[in-house]
Write a protein that binds this DNA or RNA. Structure first.
Length: 292
DNA sequence: CATCAGGCGAGAC
DNA sequence: GTCTCGCCTGAT
């Protein structure tokens, strides 16, 4: 077990931000009342992540984080995966105070981080994400892993499933992919798995490329358009200059920035700013629905 | 019953 | 190059 203190890190917000579909909450957050007149809410949350062929439980209470793994594993794998070396406070501080919307968005999602996820898993996950909702995306990915991923267990015998390899996915008959609720995306998954297997696109090569080059290479894959390619660049290759524009971001840009978004001010980390906007819009919508 | 969910590909022009 | 349309499926 590894204990650390970290600001600008919220496992709950990272989970809700919808960049990682295999991070899930284990139990409802408990609320406790602190003595005195002031009502203070204290939450302790537990999450489980399946990634990089491993299973990891994470606990958070305020800025206190616990990772259920040895120190060595944390230092070698999870420190990088969760982007813990990046100073997100400095990024938030750089936001234009005159920009009320962006200031509010960053304050709302100040615990969001851009994870450094597995390239193959992100390619498939974001092909699935197109014209789809987060609940269904999670369901399809879960089915794929259970049916075609390698079954593993932790030291304390918890069973989990790795993300299926390109070879495993390429061998799945099309109708079986439809059975996973993938719809028309089934054909995209099948063809993309074949492309990778045949070496038409080399993932190892893509990992060494600069943003524009990597994006162009990813666009060769069936089912990967501009938006999905930019998501892959951001969430797997950590190209923080990528700024994926989906229906939410598009709506916000039109409503809040009719004269154009100040991309130049945030050069090099546009993607992090994009995540604050995306998360803010998601939570605002969720709040609106909850109020009704 | 229509519309929508973190779009994309193919074909028309 | 830009525009339009059809596409699986479950929730509302």
């Amino acid at each position: 077990m590894v204990h650390i203190t970290k600001d600008h890190f919220s496992i709950a917000q990272i989970c809700q931000s919808g960049q990682c579909f295999r991070l899930e909450r284990l139990e409802m957050s408990e609320t406790a009342l602190v003595e005195g007149r002031v009502k203070e809410q204290r939450t302790k949350e537990r999450y489980a992540l399946t990634a990089l062929g491993r299973y990891l439980e994470i606990e958070q209470e305020g800025e206190q984080l616990s990772f259920a793994c040895p120190q060595e594993e944390f230092d070698q794998i999870w420190k990088e995966y969760f982007d813990l070396e990046e100073n997100y406070g400095a990024i938030i501080a750089s936001i234009d105070r005159e920009d009320g919307y962006l200031t509010a968005a960053a304050a709302c999602g100040s615990g969001v981080r851009i994870l450094r996820q597995d390239l193959w898993e992100i390619i498939i996950s974001f092909i699935i994400s197109q014209q789809n909702n987060i609940r269904r995306i999670r369901k399809s990915i879960d089915l794929l892993c259970r049916r075609y991923g390698e079954e593993r267990q932790t030291a304390d015998e918890k069973v989990y499933f790795n993300f299926p390899t390109a070879k495993a996915l390429a061998e799945v008959p099309l109708e079986k992919l439809y059975d996973c609720g993938l719809g028309y995306r089934s054909r995209y998954l099948h063809e993309t798995a074949l492309s990778i297997l045949k070496g038409e696109v080399s993932l190892e090569a893509v990992k060494t490329m600069a943003y524009q080059e990597a994006k162009a290479e990813l666009l060769k894959l069936k089912g990967v358009g501009v938006k999905v390619a930019e998501c892959i660049c951001l969430f797997a290759l950590h190209k923080t200059e990528a700024f994926p524009i989906d229906t939410h971001i598009n709506k916000v840009l039109a409503q809040q920035y009719p004269k154009g978004f100040p991309f130049d001010r945030y050069k090099g980390y546009e993607g992090i700013v994009q995540q604050y906007i995306f998360y803010y819009d998601l939570t605002e919508n969720a709040r609106r629905i909850a109020q009704k």
